[in-house]
């Protein structure tokens, strides 16, 4: 699915250089569920942002589905992103002015899906994450777990090939957190590749493989049974 080789990312301010990724290499195969772990500042989020095509790297290679995308401009990356990748964030990042239904519908709008198909897809996914009954509520009227389920629904509504989850349970209690992990596992079992950044060893155990980062480098990989 994706192959990263010798990726470098350096943050510069006037007189300080911070190396976020230091010649990092990584490969994720189609259908895998990978957890990325490491202490604060190890480069997890930077890596996830680059994989999500939200950020670009200085050097190295990033092959996505067999295509080198490291030099893609913002528009091409946006295009690639909206067709292939779904995002789940720690802080949900739902748009407050839109209802549950409208939030989930948004990626389909950007893909130009017609109205009837949108309705069918959104309803199906809301059903799946069990918040159909709250479809006309605004995010603030929901519990944290419901908000994250809505965010997951939004991430998968256009059936992406890859889901990127950035500490998806970080703002949730353990019951709600487990529900969300359950959802991700189900999606993975249905064929979607999942890459998740987490601090939680408990959550990481849902994955097939754990990659541990330190100072912008992969220091250890655990394959889970």
């Amino acid at each position: 699915m994706l192959k990263i080789t010798d990726l470098e990312k350096i943050y510069r301010t006037e007189d300080i250089e911070t190396v976020a990724l230091n010649k990092l290499s990584l490969e994720v195969k189609k259908g895998e569920f990978v957890a990325i772990m490491g202490p604060s500042g190890c480069g997890k989020s930077t890596l996830l942002n680059i994989i999500g095509m939200l950020d670009d790297a200085e050097k190295g290679s990033f092959m996505f589905n067999g295509e080198e995308i490291i030099h893609f401009n913002e528009r091409r990356r946006a295009d690639l992103r909206k067709r292939n990748i779904g995002f789940v964030f720690q802080s949900f990042n739902l748009i407050d002015e839109l209802t549950v239904y409208e939030n989930v519908e948004l990626p389909l709008l950007y893909l130009g899906v017609d109205a009837a198909e949108r309705k069918q897809k959104v309803e199906a996914v809301l059903e799946k994450v069990q918040i159909m009954h709250r479809r006309n509520h605004f995010p603030q009227q929901l519990s944290g777990g419901q908000q994250q389920r809505c965010a997951v629904a939004r991430a998968v509504v256009n059936t992406p090939k890859l889901i990127l989850a950035d500490e998806p349970t970080g703002n949730l209690d353990s019951t709600n957190g487990n529900e969300v992990m359950q959802l991700l596992t189900e999606l993975n079992e249905a064929g979607t590749t999942v890459i998740m950044v987490t601090h939680s060893e408990h959550d990481a155990r849902f994955a097939h493989r754990i990659i541990r980062l330190l100072d912008g480098k992969v220091v250890m990989e655990n394959i889970l049974g």
């Binding site: 999500g52 939200l54 913002e74 528009r75 946006a78 295009d79 992103r81 909206k82 067709r83 995002f87 990042n93 739902l94 748009i95 407050d96 002015e97 948004l106 990626p107 950007y110 893909l111 939004r154």
Partner: peptide
Amino acid sequence: SKEVGVRKVLGSSKAQ
């Protein structure tokens, strides 16, 4: 800004 961020992540182009 959050809305802009979310929209971009979900595939909105700058022009949109």
